[in-house]
Computed example of a mutant assay.
Amino acid sequence: MKKKGERGEEKGMTYREAGVDVGKVRAAQESLGGIISATHKMISQGRVLSGFGHYAGLVKLGGQTIALHSDGVGTKVLVAQLMNKFDTVGIDCVAMNVNDIICVGAQPVAFIDYIALREPNEALIEEIARGLVEGARQSDMAIVGGETAVLPDIIAGQENAFDLAGMVMGVVKKGKKPMLGSAIKPGDVILGVESSGLHSNGYTLARKVLLSKYSVDDNAEHLVQTVGEELLAPTRIYVRPVMELLDKIRVHGLANITGGSFTKLPRLNRNVKYVLDSLPAPTGIFRQIQSDGRIEAAEMYRTFNMGVGFCVVAPKEEAEPAIRIFKKHRMACRVVGRIERGAGSVEAKLGDGRMHDLQSSKN
C-alpha cells in the first residue's frame, strides 16, 4: 500500500524504499572508520594527517602531503549494459575519484582502475578504457596501472555484465595546507557549480522510478534526450577550474555533491550552519524523476545533486572572481547559500518556499 501524508495524499518513493538506507550506510561507514583508524599508527614512513570522514585520506611523506581516495560507478553500470554503450563510464569512474580528491586541495596525479567482468570481453574493456583515458585527460593525470578480474560467480547478469572502480593519488602543492574546511565561518557564501545531470549517485532510486515506466530508448516530458542517454550522461569533472581557483582566490571549503547530496556539507566543518536559500528549481531529469516517482522535494535534495555538482565555500568578496573562473571553463556557477552560526545543520529553501532541515526525514 502507498503511504499517506498528513493530508491523506499518497507519498512517493524514497531512496530507502528503493533499497538504499543512507542512515544505515553511514552507520556502517562510521563503524568501519573506527576499526581502520587503528592502522594510522602502523605506518613505517610518514604520518597520517586525516583518515576516515573527509573526501580523501591524507599522508605526510617527507615534505609532501599525499591524498588518496577510492570510488566506483555504482549501479550506473547497469544503464550502460542496457544501452550496450561503455565508452563513457570510465569518465564517471575517474570523475567520482578526482572530484573528491580536489576537495582537500590536492591535484590528481595518478590513477589505478579495477574492472570486474562476468566473462572475458576484450571489446568491452577497450570501450571502458577509452572513457578512463578521456577522464584522465580532463584531470591532467596519468593512469599508471590497474586490475582486470573475471568473476562469473560474483558478477551476475548478461554477457556484458561488469563492475568498475578506481583509486586516485594526488598531491597538495608544497607550501599550501590541505583544504579541510576549518576556515569556514559565518558570513561566507556557498557557490554552486552546475552538474551534467545525475553524475553517478542515486541510481538505485532513479532506475526504479524511470525504468519501471520507460525503456532506455523512450522519450519523456522533461528530457531532451532519451531516458537512457540522460541516465548515461558522463559525470562532470571539476579539476581544472578548482585548481585555478585555489591558486587565485581565497577558498575556505570545497564539496563534491555526490552520495547524500547536500547533507554531507557538514563534513567540511561541523561548527557552522549551511543555509541553502537559492538552490535551482528542478529541471530535466531531476524534474522527471520527481514527477514520475511523486517524490517529496526534501527527499530529492537529500538524494540527488539537483543540478549543483560541486560547492565552493568562500568569503563573500571572492564570489565574483570564483564565478568568472568557472565561466572561463564553461561551467555555470552561482551563489546558492551562505554560512551562519550553528552546529552542523543543513537547511534549504525548497519549492514550497519553506526552509527544510535536509538532515531530518521529518519535514
Rank of each mutant, 00 (worst) to 15 (best):
N97T: 11
V98R: 14
N99P: 04
I101F: 05
I102E: 02
C103M: 02
C103K: 11
G105M: 08
A106Q: 03
Q107L: 09
Q107D: 13
P108V: 11
V109A: 15
V109C: 08
F111S: 04
Y114A: 13
I115E: 08
A116F: 00
P120R: 08
P120N: 03
N121Q: 01
E122Y: 11
A123M: 05
A123L: 15
A123E: 14
L124A: 06
L124V: 03
L124D: 03
I125W: 04
I125S: 08
E126K: 07
E127M: 15
E127Y: 00
V133L: 04
V133N: 09
G135L: 10
G135W: 09
A136S: 05
M141E: 00
A142Q: 12
I143K: 04
V144L: 12
T148F: 10
A149V: 08
I154M: 10
I154N: 08
A156D: 02
A156Y: 03
G157E: 04
E159V: 06
N160R: 15
N160V: 00
F162H: 14
L164F: 12
A165T: 08
A165I: 00
G166S: 05
M167C: 14
M169S: 13
V171N: 13
K176A: 06
P178L: 08
P178M: 04
L180P: 15
G181T: 06
I184N: 03
K185T: 15
P186T: 02
P186G: 02
L191M: 15
E194I: 06
E194H: 04
E194P: 10
S195K: 05
S196D: 04
S196Y: 10
H199R: 06
S200C: 12
S200V: 07
N201G: 01
G202H: 00
T204N: 05
A206S: 11
R207L: 01
R207T: 01
